[in-house]
Design a protein around this nucleic acid. Structure first.
Lengths: 330, 330
DNA sequence: GAAAACACAGTAAACGTTTTCACTGGAGCT
DNA sequence: AGCTCCAGTGAAAACGTTTACTGTGTTTTC
């Protein structure tokens, strides 16, 4: 059915070896032969069987990416960057969704390992020890998580949080709640770290709440707790939680940003579109995905480039959910 | 480096054939041997090389999905369904993002064709002739698009639109604008068709506007045109456009649903969360993805099941952007 | 009690490539 | 003329599997 290298060889009246060379190392074959072979190949619509090629070269031309949830625009943003950069280097991309299950994450990476040249892993929660195990099974690049000895594409959430606190303090807020995401999440620890440093530097009060599930419902739940603490500003772990907070505050008749200021993190599409538009921190998701691919491919290169961990900048986006606290207005 | 079937065979003191059989056709090997082999395999962490297997069986164990934009939650919803259902049948999933470029869509499917057993294609816009060409190159299943002779997983947008119009008419609206998405999009034609039928049946006025780009900006642009037509209700091609309309109307001081009612389509996450919450039609995106996989796998089965086109139901979700027109309140 | 059937396991051929090695003929050198 | 060298090509081995074929020893059948 499918046209193989043998068909091309026969039609071009050369050996299969010559066809292979004409296609993969053109300089090894005489120009006239090469042209004839290429012409026949194009004519027959020949496409090399990558599985067979991979079998012998040991390189599959495939990349894998494992994410916790394909419904989360943060991860699909990364995926989009990965896919586009991979395509530029003519790699194909396997995708797997672990449904937030760490055990599944491990199995998926392991299952992919045989079929890809490397895996990009978005797993804020997986135990470090398991991550190391996976790195032994295949070339691994982490997204937004730092583990010693493993390449990573990072977003400087610490600096994003600093910008958030600087902004809130400049507005006059003195008592701020942070709604933690999952304790085990690397991003949450990182964001919290940046936030604590900034808070300390400014000498304002921090109310550390949670952890909460990093979802809309988590925000609903967190909002009440934060309110009970009498804070004037709420910093949510991410936009989705922030949206939950916003909804809950609205339901309870608390005006944002009139009585309470609120910030998110991620700058998902709806952050700009909800009402009031959410002040948040923009994450360079697509660039990070692209960077991940670059890091991976550079490690796969001839003598395996250095293990690099590179950080891309985040950016505070001030919209309509932050304002001076109400008492400072009087 | 990697552990092969030969290593397992040696350690279990059997031939490679027996190992292969123990793994793929257990009934052909004595229970005691089978157990020994499986134990060794597990012990060594053996994972079959799927490329090698595929080379001889002709089946790769991979599926492909091509979508126009991974930032669009509609498509990632389908992707999520596809990925989860594929995994259940232990298929791996290739994903490709065409960036809305029809030429890229064609190339991507063709490139995938050699590496997968079938492709799921989300391409509302690709020319029918090209779709047929692709279906010849690999097993194809279309998402939300009907082409004769090609299996498809559909969402009954027509019935969704009927529900929308029934709802608006019941509220008392008599002059309704439809904001078209791309003319070439199968979904748009389908939605428009359902809408026209319903409108005619009720004998109300329809103002057919557009086409507009199916994005936020398209909504901004469309809002003004609709307003100029003096309609009391606006039916947008999808949620993202509807959100644009909402923003534009708010900027112009037109109250929703007080002066104008508005509906979207797709029920993206933010539809429930924006203010006012958007009345829209929920699409069974994940189930459709799953259905797509089922259709594909059934075609791949022994004697290739029938070519089926199956339709899943959509569901009107009434929220806060629809109300009786203002004049009917007086 | 012999023939036939069977359950089980091993040998080797295939799948479509790449790549090592060997071969050819001609060019350049002494 | 004889030698080496090189460009260009082909034959064949390899990659890790599956599977048709073959060969055992044991059971069933008459």
């Amino acid at each position: 059915m499918a046209v193989t290298i043998r068909d091309v060889a026969r039609q071009a009246e050369v050996s299969v070896a010559t066809v292979s060379r004409a296609l993969t190392s053109p300089e090894l074959v005489r120009a006239s032969t090469r042209e004839r072979v290429l012409a026949v190949a194009a004519d027959l619509g020949y496409q090399p069987n990558l599985a067979a090629r991979g079998l012998i070269t040991g390189r599959t031309g495939n990349l894998g990416i494992v994410v916790p949830d394909l419904n989360n625009p943060f991860f699909t943003g990364v995926l989009k960057g990965v896919q586009s950069q991979a395509r530029q280097s003519s790699y194909a991309v396997f995708v797997a969704d672990s449904d937030e299950d760490p055990a599944a994450e491990r199995d998926l990476v392991l299952a992919m390992a045989k079929q890809v040249d490397g895996v990009i892993l978005c797993s804020p929660g997986l135990e470090e020890q398991v991550v190391r195990e996976l790195a032994r099974a295949t070339s691994l690049v982490l997204i937004n998580r730092r583990v010693r000895g493993i390449p990573a594409a990072l977003m400087s959430s610490g600096s994003g949080m600093r910008q958030v606190i600087d902004h809130l303090v400049a507005l006059g807020h003195g008592r701020i709640a942070y709604l933690n995401g999952p304790r085990t999440s690397w991003s949450n620890r990182e964001r919290r770290r940046g936030l604590k440093a900034a808070v300390q530097r400014h000498g304002v009060d921090l109310v550390d709440l949670g952890p909460f599930p990093p979802r809309y419902e988590g925000g609903l739940q967190a909002a009440d707790l934060a309110l009970a603490e009498g804070v004037t500003a709420i910093v949510a772990y991410n936009d989705i939680m922030a949206l939950g907070v916003l909804a809950r505050l609205r339901d309870r008749g608390v005006s944002v940003p009139g009585q309470v200021s609120l910030t998110g993190f991620d700058d998902l599409m709806f952050a700009a579109l909800c009402q009031p538009a959410l002040t948040t921190v923009a994450m360079p998701v697509e660039p990070t995905g692209r960077l991940g691919v670059d890091l991976l491919l550079s490690r796969l290169g001839r003598d395996g480039g250095a293990i690099r961990q590179e950080e891309l900048d985040t950016q505070l986006i001030v919209r309509a959910t932050t304002a001076p606290p109400s008492d400072s207005r009087n």
